[in-house]
Amino acid sequence: MEQLLKEAYGNVFEPALLTDIANVATLVDFKEGDHLIEIGQYIRQMPLLINGAIKIIREDRQEGELLLYFLEKGDTCAMTLACCLGDTKSEIRAVAETRGTVAMIPIGKMEEWLGKHKGWRNFVFSSYNKRLSEMLSAIDNLAFMKMDERLLSYLKEKSKVNQSKVITNTHQEIAYELNTSRVVISRLLKALENEGIIKLNRNTIELLK
């Protein structure tokens, strides 16, 4: 386990911290589509993403879901950190975008390492800042960007985390994550294809630019 942790976090965690994590962490494998965290759930362990990608979603019971951001290798979820340390229920849903592995850390160790390891303190504060910036970007997208701009940004981010120019989500799935209708998404995708930015295939969307 320590080697896996080193590959994902060796540039931010000191050797002693990597050893401490390996001694208490539990590795959990997941596959695409798995729900790793549910809204309303108490979180008793903090996830460190060893590999793969996870999308973090906020739910509006009347309007549907909204994609906040993606987690990638070497990340953790700041909102999960807050729930763990504050013993509060989760307000987000974490869904696996790809297959991968997380290392689950007990709550007690999270607090202990804040005083013991500088690398851990820096990582926690950096994660908060990064996730806050991403959530502010999500708010900006909603408030200031047109839907076609949000759609293109979404497609590029999906391509990045999946490391592929081909996106397999259906028009309905995209509409759900962007909190709009399938008809709107289909129309905007066709417009992007006419501009030569994407190519629509029977079950996939290919980014050309």
Rank of each mutant, 00 (worst) to 15 (best):
L178V: 01
E63R: 07
D34I: 07
I37D: 04
L68Y: 09
N201W: 07
E65I: 08
R131P: 00
E38K: 14
C84V: 15
A8E: 03
M147W: 06
N201F: 07
L136C: 04
G100M: 04
K55T: 00
I92V: 14
I54V: 14
L151C: 09
D60G: 12
V24H: 02
F70Q: 10
Q172P: 00
E65H: 05
R150C: 14
Q3M: 08
K190M: 09
F144E: 12
A16H: 08
I21W: 01
I139P: 00
A53W: 01
Y69S: 12
T204M: 01
L142W: 09
M46V: 03
F123N: 00
E7R: 15
N203Y: 10
W113D: 01
R150H: 10
L71N: 01
F13C: 05
S164N: 14
E111T: 15
R99W: 09
I56K: 08
G108H: 13
L136I: 13
E195Y: 09
T19I: 07
L4P: 02
T88W: 05
K156A: 05
T170A: 02
V184G: 02
P106D: 08
V28R: 13
E195V: 04
R150Q: 15
G40P: 08
D148S: 07
E59I: 11
T180I: 06
Y69T: 13
Y9A: 09
V124Q: 01
Q163G: 11
Q3A: 10
H171V: 14
G86K: 15
T80I: 14
Q172N: 13
E72L: 09
L18V: 04
V24G: 00
L200W: 02
S137Y: 06
A22Y: 00
A25I: 11
H117F: 07
M79H: 10
R182L: 07
R182S: 11
E149S: 11
C84Q: 06
E97D: 07
E206P: 02
E193S: 03
R150N: 06
R121D: 08
N23G: 03
M79F: 13
L114G: 09
V161I: 12
I174D: 02
G10M: 04
N203S: 12
R121G: 08
A8F: 06
G86N: 13
D29F: 08
V102N: 02
G86P: 07
K156T: 04
D20Y: 00
F13N: 01
L132V: 13
